[in-house]
Amino acid sequence: MAEHPNQLEVEPAGFALARERSAGGPSRKGALLDRRPGAATRFFTHPVTLRIVSAAALCLAWQWAGTVPISPAFPTFTETMAALWAMLADGSLFAAFAITLQPLLIGLVVSAILGVAVGVAMGLDERAEWFASPIFIVAQAAPLAALIPLIVFAYGIGLTSKTLVVCIMAMPVIVLNSFAAVRHTPVSLTEMGRSFLAPRRKVISRIILPAASPVIFAGLRLGCASGFIGAILAELLITPTGVGDIITYSRSIADYPSMYAAILSIIVFSVVFIEAIEQAEVILFRPEKRASP
């Protein structure tokens, strides 16, 4: 990992994942932790034990907070699970997801293709960078959600508007990560390509793009996370459909367990979805990560 040329901390957003990743490595402050634990201690500090403890603690805290209750609008964990089960059993949750996923998937595919293309073009060509990068740098920092009312004026309350919301949320980070990834291709790798007589086209396809792909994928994952934010926001703000409809409707009739269950399901779904993209990346594009040492 240390030698991988692309574990750069690049754009504000690419940063987050790269950092998270590097921090996941072996701890460098071993000296501090160098106590020799007994068997019991080892069991209690084992990662799996602690993960289960952590999940159980959260569920228990939720259950307790719902039993008190800390708020009339706070159902217990078991009530929420029951509601989730009911929605799964009668298929309403699947129907809602089918609707929510439409703008989300269309928006993500469009953003991914367009965003990577624009970002790579900016990385390869200084004129493209000059022309487009200030727009995306501003877009990355700006609260683009404020554009939603305008999008509704322009495109109504249908699928187009919701897809556009997903696009404007997801695109900047994808563009900026792709740009930075291409721009930070190690010079010695491109020199290697030239010195072994690769034409420009081959240098791009065989060296620059593969070298940039980890950071491009980090951008895609961040873009997906933003796209989910956009999709839910669109459903809550423009017209309640899909999962947003369950949330809005159950809130209006004070059916809080259903509301919480819908929210929980969309959060879990997004986390699984982003994890799946990461797995797909490893399977399709990272032979060196699959190789056994």
Binding site: A57, R221, L222, I232, I263, I267
Partner: peptide
């Protein structure tokens, strides 16, 4: 670290807009 990290990572990339209605009802 092991108790909190999974949740921090989860919320880092979760669609937080979905949680705003929860804050609103409470």
């Amino acid at each position: 670290d092991r108790l909190f990290l999974p949740w921090v990572n989860l919320f880092l990339s979760a669609p937080l807009t979905a949680l705003v209605p929860v804050i609103m009802v409470i």
